[in-house]
Amino acid sequence: MAVYVYAIVGKDHPVRLTGLRGVGEPGAPLRTITTESLRAVVSDTPHAQGHDARNAPVHQEVLTRLMEDGTVLPVCVGRVVPDDAAVRIALENEAEAYRRDLRHVDGCAEYRLQVAQDAEALLRQILEDSYTARKLNDDIRTAAEDPDLPLHLGEMINGEARARHRAFAAGVIEALRPLVRAQASLEPEDDAFFSASFLVPDDRESLFYAAAVSLAQQAGDDFRFRFEGPLPPYSFISRPIADRGA
Rank of each mutant, 00 (worst) to 15 (best):
R21V: 01
T132M: 02
D191Y: 07
D146N: 10
C76F: 09
A196N: 02
R112M: 03
V172N: 04
F227A: 07
S37T: 07
A53M: 13
A212Q: 03
D44P: 11
L73Q: 08
E187N: 02
Q125E: 15
T64A: 06
V200E: 10
H104D: 14
I241L: 08
D129C: 09
D221L: 15
L151A: 13
G229C: 13
T18E: 08
N93V: 09
S238M: 11
E145V: 14
T18W: 04
E228R: 11
K11C: 07
Y4T: 06
P147E: 12
F208L: 05
V62P: 11
A95N: 05
F225R: 08
L38D: 04
P46K: 12
F225A: 12
V115L: 15
V58G: 01
G27Y: 11
G27I: 08
V213P: 10
A210H: 05
I241T: 06
L151H: 07
E128F: 04
A196H: 05
A7N: 01
D118P: 09
P230T: 06
M67C: 12
V3L: 05
L136W: 03
A182R: 05
M1H: 02
A53N: 14
H165I: 04
D106M: 07
H152S: 07
G107N: 03
L113H: 09
K11G: 08
R141N: 12
R112A: 02
F193L: 15
G10P: 06
V62R: 03
G229P: 08
I89W: 12
G10D: 15
A242T: 06
V3R: 02
A192S: 14
R88W: 08
P14F: 04
D190K: 10
S37N: 08
R99I: 01
R181T: 15
E25H: 03
I89T: 12
P230V: 08
A184H: 09
F193M: 15
P178M: 02
V5S: 03
R39C: 14
A184P: 08
R226S: 15
G24T: 14
A143V: 01
P82V: 05
P201I: 11
D118E: 01
P74T: 10
R244L: 09
R204H: 09
V81N: 02
L122D: 06
A211T: 12
E36R: 00
A163G: 07
A86Y: 05
R177D: 14
I140M: 01
V58I: 13
V115M: 10
A219L: 13
